[in-house]
Write a protein that binds this DNA or RNA. Structure first.
Lengths: 125, 125
DNA sequence: ACAACCTTGACACGGTAGTGCTAAGGTTTC
DNA sequence: GAAACCTTAGCACTACCGTGTCAAGGTTGT
């Protein structure tokens, strides 16, 4: 049975045992298990836990941020969607006719209506 | 004074006026201002607000997630750090001698001590 | 000039993240 | 076989996110 138990790993990484379980639940750092189910932390997990700590502190991140970063990292479609949204700062959206784009000089009420129509359904109120 | 006021923008995008201000505070979608300080939303902002809505719903994201994604997008160092951490799943950390890596077959107490030493300071208790 | 907007600032409140602690029960070590 | 670990499950509490609403005051349109 090689590897540090959860309390030992906690002591060396600065996390609490409770947090090590939480971090595992968050999908960030898991350890392997002994035959009886005990968590066993090897050097790689310990290092990962330490660098995680430093990362959060250095950049003021939350664990949930890293959870989201992990999603971004694994989910290609998600990353593409988010990147695209972020990249489109002051840009004309691609799926809309650049033709007139709502004749931006009409009466305000007409503009509002046009905008509503441009956006199909959603809160028909 | 062209552009939709905040209430009009709210009506066409499905957000509340309150949330449009919140989203602006979060650095996600800002509008330009009239000379007297009124928010004025143009078609690009409206589109951005709508797609933001869709993005959150489609992927079950929170606004804070997009805030973090924005940080990742702008802060090169942060992105590099996060990516590196995520990429180092079952990998040996780079700044450590691959030589022995703590002679992983010693007595558990020695291992613990070694691990503590490997990690310089931090919670000296 | 009055109604109907807008601004910022603040309080409030439900939901979730992060964290400790306890309980009930299995494992390891002496 | 008792002491000192570990496991999961759950309660509790703080802090922040998301959101509505209200207050005090400026702007706009008729």
């Amino acid at each position: 049975m090689d590897g540090l138990t959860i309390a030992e790993a906690a002591a060396t990484t600065g996390w609490s045992a409770r947090m090590l379980r939480y971090i595992e639940d968050a999908g960030l750092v898991a350890s392997r298990r002994s035959s009886s189910g005990y968590r066993l932390y090897g050097p790689e997990e310990l290092q990962r836990l330490r660098t995680l700590r430093e990362l959060l502190e250095k950049y003021g991140l939350a664990l949930s941020d890293m959870g989201f970063a992990r999603r971004l990292h694994h989910d290609e479609a998600l990353r593409a969607a988010v990147d695209e949204w972020l990249a489109a700062s002051p840009r004309r959206p691609t799926h809309v006719e650049p033709a007139d784009w709502l004749g931006w000089e009409q009466d305000k009420h007409e503009r509002l209506l046009a905008a509503v129509y441009a956006n199909n359904e959603e809160h028909t109120a």
